[in-house]
Structure formats: C-alpha cells, structure tokens
Design a protein around this nucleic acid. Structure first.
Lengths: 226, 226
DNA sequence: TCACTATGGATTGCTGAACAATCCTGAGGT
DNA sequence: ACCTCAGGATTGTTCAGCAATCCATAGTGA
C-alpha cells in the first residue's frame, strides 16, 4: 500500500502553506467564505492550527491565484468579481477555447474522445439534480478543450481563471433551470469536436460563450446592486 | 514634492517581499543568477538585509512565476528550461499570438498603430548594437500583440511566460547574428497587422514562431549537453 | 447639529531567535 | 569497493514581539 492518502493528519507531503491554501480555496469556492470576506490571519491561523506566518503564505498564494485581493496594511479579502473582471475572463476564455477548437484537427482522435467522459459525467450529475457537480463537470469539459492546445502552462492558467469565475456564483443560490441549459450544449459541442466539424464547433462555442458571459454579467450586476 | 521616488531606501510603497522578488528577478533575467543556481535563504536574506522569512516569501513568488523551482527540504533554485518547457511555452505563444492576429480586425486602428512604437524601439536598439535591449523590445512587441485580445489576465500570463523563455538565453552569450534576424521580421508582422492583412500576418507569425522555437530548442539542447 | 481631531485598540508587516526534520558530506569500518 | 552512520548544513515551521498603519469611537470647537 504505497503512498497512503490520509489527507488530514499526514505529515507534509508538501508545504504546510499549500495545504492551508487548499483548505481555504475549498471554503472560497464552496461559498463558505463569500466575496468581500476579510481573511484575518490571526483568527485563521489559530483555527487551522498553524502559525500566523504560514497562514500568511497561504493567503499570498490565493492572492496570486486571483481568488483574494490584497491591500497594504489592510490585509486580504475574498475577491469579488465586477463586470470588468467577467469581460476580462471571457476574453481569455474565447481566446483559448476558440483557438483550441480551431486547431482541434491536430489533436489525436483519442484526445477528442476523452472529452466525452466529462460531458457524460455532467449529464449524469444533471439527471441526478446535482447542479453544483454538473457545473464542475462542465468546466472540466472546457478545461479538456483547452488541454487540446497542449500547453501545461495554459492549462494551469485556465484552471485558475475558471476558479475565479466561480466566485460569481458563490453568492447566489444555484438555480436548477439556470444550469440545466448548459449540459446539452456541452454535449453538442463535444460531438461536433469529435466528428471533426471544427468550424461548426467554433461557431457553437462562440455562441455558448456569449450566452454564458451574459448570464454571469447579469449575476454580477444583481449581486453588486444588492 | 509629494511622493518621492528614491527607490532604494523608500518606505514600502508595496510589500517588502515583492521588492526583494523584483531584485531577484532582475538577477535571474540578467543572467547574474544562472539556471540551476540554488537560492539559499540564509545567505540571500543577509545580503538583501531582510529577514529569512521575508526572503522566503519573495522566493515563493518567483516559484509561482515559474522562474524558480522548489523541492521539499531542498529549497529553491533558478529554473532551467528543458526541451519540453520550450515546446510548452511555444504552444502557448502560438495559441495566444495567432489568436490575437486572427481577431486583430476587432481592435481599434489606434491599438494596432501603437505596436509600431515597440518595433521602432527594437530597430533603434538593433542599429546601436544593443542586442539585449533589442530582444526586450521585440518581446514587448509580441506582448502588445497579445494585448489586442483584451484580457489583462492573459497579458500577465504572457508576460511571465516570456520571462521564463529568457531563462534559455541567460546561459549563452547573446550573438549578434543570432538576434539580428528577428527585428526585420517583427517589422514585417507589425506592418501586416496595421494594414489589416491579418491572414498574411497570421501566416508570417506562425513561421516566425516555428523558426524561433527551433532556435531556442537548439540553445537548450546545447546547454543541456554541455 | 455638524465638521474636525485625536486617541486607543486592533490588525498588519516584518524581525529575530529557536527547534525539528531532512539532506548532504565525508570518515570510518568491513 | 561498498555500506553505515555521525555531524554539519539547510530547510520548514513556530513563537514572541515591535513598528506602522488602519479603524472606530469619543471628544472638541464652531
């Protein structure tokens, strides 16, 4: 039984600050720490049972990932997206995902078929009514699309970027009808990519991103005016 | 005289760790700290006159930027590029720069004309024989191309990525003839973009990146076998 | 009542020393 | 030549503390 995985009390397979950052990231993406919520190091350090210094390093990691913002002498707080952020993120998504779709003919068929697994998982989660899980799988599918480009650096960038995008949803309850529409569109895009109709796939993806951006902008506006 | 700018002894306009990270980054990109060089915190902390803890935060920033690598209980060292890294970086460059060229028709003419300033600076530096400066201006031009996409997040990503690319050059002396060829090609690409011939620009850019990648791979192979 | 000040506490940024865990080197033994 | 195993060096982390800055609240003056 090599490489056990008791994530809780295991001695450090990696730095303590990264472990704390993981736990904080979970709290943020799950909505337990809402945008705007300050991250006070003394309190959090005691709560996690680490030194204030280690916790500060963890927070700095989250700032670097764009999940928190930092102000000198005012500390860090969970990042709240504004409309400009959403446009910025979708400009990046369009660049990467459309590029990936357009150059998808260079990817091996095996890689394209691998995308199906994410969409299938999203479909299963949607049928079971687990909308949060469905959203996760949907984003995994889009990560898979970007992965076709073949750059681990871009993969990491995209992962942190969509993590930021989820900040917009962490303050509003997930409405089933709000999420339901996306899974069949993912299915359609996936099938178009697998069958090599990349022009249609790119076009569908462009519409998908336009619609998605509109929805997120609406959410951010609603939160902002609340 | 508000807001004096004695960069040396000025009280922190921003975090001390970031200031130290800047100075370390300069040393790395200038080649004073060669790839593989370990970053021992005790020594560097004393040299920069900061505490070991602050220096560790600075090093962590560089690790996050990809300019250094970290191993548990073995500390950090300046990152050395291997061939896989170069392929990874150029996959990202192709995705972003080609995408930017293809969608350049959505950019205002003013933004396209702004690119000229970087190429002009590169030409001046090349004529003066300042090849390092010319390389910097050339990369500024390519950053400007990516900027057309309109995502600050992608801009930051691209900036750190090309900074990593410079690691490949920090171990070899810059040969004039090696660098001379790129400036006229930048000029050609810039003019194609400004005149709206984006298909030709994209094609030329693709060839440019292919040639550039080959050159960097050769350099990395030479360093690796040395 | 409405500004404006100031004062004390809370929080942050950073330091220096300490300690355990791990790595590395080299001497010694077989 | 190979193994072992001390000893030092380096790293990861903690703790206590201090200066700088923010924030809220109270007081002051008009």
């Amino acid at each position: 039984m090599p490489d056990e995985e008791n994530d809780a009390a295991a001695p450090p397979p990696y730095l303590a600050a990264e472990a704390i950052a993981d736990r904080l990231r979970d709290r943020i993406t799950s909505g337990a720490l809402a945008p705007g919520n300050p991250l006070r190091d003394a309190a959090l350090a005691e709560e996690f049972g680490v030194s204030r210094n280690t916790l500060r390093e963890a927070v700095r990691l989250l700032v670097h990932e764009g999940l928190a913002v930092h102000q000198l002498y005012k500390g860090a707080a969970v990042k709240g997206l504004d409309v400009a952020d959403v446009h910025d993120i979708y400009a990046a998504r369009r660049a990467l995902e459309l590029r990936a779709a357009e150059q998808s003919f260079t990817a091996p068929q095996q890689a394209l078929d691998g995308l199906d697994r994410y969409v299938a998982a999203a479909e299963r989660a949607a049928e079971a009514g687990q909308w949060n899980e469905a959203a996760t799988c949907s984003l995994d599918f889009h990560r898979g699309v970007v992965h076709l480009i073949g750059s681990a650096r871009l993969d990491r960038f995209f992962r942190t970027t969509v993590a930021q995008l989820r900040l917009a949803f962490s303050e509003v309850p997930i409405e089933a009808e709000f999420q339901r529409q996306w899974v069949p569109r993912d299915r359609e895009l996936c099938d178009l990519l697998r069958s090599g109709r990349r022009a249609e796939a790119a076009e569908g993806l462009a519409r998908y991103l336009d619609d998605s951006e509109r929805q997120v902008v609406d959410i951010v506006r609603a939160v902002h005016s609340a």
